[in-house]
Structures are given as structure tokens and as C-alpha cells.
Design a protein around this nucleic acid. Structure first.
Length: 231
DNA sequence: ACCCAGGTGTTTC
DNA sequence: GAAACACATGGG
């Protein structure tokens, strides 16, 4: 069972995911920053605030008072730090690329990634999400689900971001649509099946998953953790 | 009353 | 390096 076959299994089970939600490249970037360690539901509320107040564009975020921006993105959690991160990005965009996403995106894929990583508050996952979903360049996005699930499947031993990313990229065709869909499917699997509930029996990958085979390791892990809280 | 969310930066050993 | 911690809202 290789990386592409797993993709096909997930796609057969879940279908098109229609990612990334968002009408413009800039909205996708904002969403990528706001969704750090937050549920998409909360991010939607924050983005709605930005839209209703006509703040969801490069120049307005650049100009707006930090305090005002904080209040608008509040529902997404970590709101002070995230408002600052949005500011960091647009400051970078105006100071180095004339406020133009088109100029920024004209960089080669790896240069673009490196530039994004130079912004305080944009880490590897956020950078790859922007490169893939906003700039439409084939950079595979890794998240906590990707590492957890593929480790459990026994397909990957590595847990380091760049190594996991390389494993996917080296074993798949460099295809933007494929990368977009694959990451979305992994998040879907992680959220809906392979996380908190004993639903291994309906997981499309159950035959190959030691997680299911050893019978609900996640529950054991969970009770182990709560034991610590008991005295 | 917990636990968790489509992470990241800083501090500390 | 890698582990521990801060950052914070809203839903299960």
C-alpha cells in the first residue's frame, strides 16, 4: 500500500473536500494564520467580522489599529498574537513586495516558502498552506494528523516535519490538485474518525492500521493521561 | 469541569 | 535538539 493508493482509498470514501474555503488568495492567507490551533468554526466567525467591517484586504489590515484588529479576530482564539501575526505578514508584504501578492507569488516555490518562513508567526505548516492553497504551487502540507495517522499506519517512522513532507513529495507526482485534496482528506479523517472516538471499524484504512489492530490505543493513551490528573 | 482545535515562538535544560 | 510553556476562544 503506497501513498497514492491510500489517497485513492480516502478519496473513494470521502470524496472532494473543496479546500481551501475562501474566495481570494488573501483570505486564504488570513485563514491559514487564524486557524493555527483553532477550530475552523471559530476562524469563520473571525473572518466574517473582518468581511463585515470591510477589513479583509491587504491595505486595510496594513492600516488598521492593532487593537481594532484584535477585537475583530477575537473568536479565533490567541487573538492578540494572531492580530500581530496578520500585521507581521502585511508589513512584510508592503515593505518587501510593494503590497503585491502577485509579486510575492512570482517567486520560485522554495524561495517563496523561505520568504514566508521569515515572517514571525508563519511556521512550516502555515507557509506550506499558503504556498499550496493561495499560490497554487505543489508544496505538501503536513499537520499533526498527518504525522499521527501515518505513524500509526506504520508507513512512516519519522515525526519531523520536513522529513514527513519529503516522504509525501518523493512518493507522489508533483501535482497541485492532488496535494490540496490529499491534505484535506487527511484532516477530514483525523477530525472525524481517527481521533477521539472508537470508530476504527468504519475507518477506510483500518486493515492496515495498528491502531485498529491493537484495539483502540487512543483510548488507552487517553486514560493514561487522565490517570495523571487523578490522585 | 474537563479536553481539544487544520501551530508557533520563546525559554530552558 | 527537544521538552515545557504561553498564547485564548468556543464546542463537545
Amino acid at each position: 500500500m503506497n501513498f497514492f493508493e491510500i489517497y485513492e482509498k480516502l478519496f473513494d470514501k470521502f470524496g472532494e473536500q473543496h479546500w481551501w474555503p475562501g474566495d481570494t488568495a488573501f483570505e486564504i492567507i488570513v485563514g491559514a494564520i487564524l486557524t493555527q490551533q483553532a477550530s475552523w468554526k471559530n476562524v469563520e466567525a473571525a473572518i466574517k467580522n473582518l468581511k463585515n467591517n470591510k477589513v479583509l484586504d491587504e491595505k486595510t489590515i496594513y492600516k488598521i489599529e492593532l487593537k481594532n484588529l484584535e477585537e475583530l479576530v477575537r473568536p479565533s482564539g490567541f487573538y492578540r498574537i494572531k492580530a500581530k501575526r496578520l500585521k507581521n505578514f502585511v508589513n512584510f508584504l508592503f515593505e518587501k513586495y510593494d503590497g503585491s501578492l502577485e509579486k510575492l507569488f512570482s517567486l520560485k516555490k522554495n524561495e517563496l516558502r523561505k520568504e514566508l518562513l521569515s515572517v514571525n508567526g508563519i511556521g512550516k505548516e502555515t507557509a506550506d498552506s499558503i504556498v499550496l492553497y493561495a499560490a497554487n504551487k505543489p508544496s505538501f502540507v503536513v499537520d499533526a494528523y498527518t504525522i499521527r495517522i501515518f505513524n500509526r499506519l506504520g508507513i512512516l517512522k519519522e515525526k519531523e516535519y520536513d522529513k514527513v513532507k519529503a516522504a509525501f513529495e518523493n512518493n507522489l507526482p508533483q501535482d497541485v490538485q492532488l496535494y490540496k485534496e490529499y491534505h484535506a482528506l487527511i484532516v477530514n479523517l483525523g477530525k472525524n474518525i481517527c481521533k477521539t472516538k472508537p470508530l476504527c471499524d468504519i475507518c477506510p484504512l483500518k486493515e492496515m492500521c495498528e491502531h485498529a489492530a491493537t484495539n483502540n490505543n487512543h483510548l488507552k493513551e487517553k486514560s493514561k493521561r487522565s490517570e495523571k490528573g487523578f490522585k
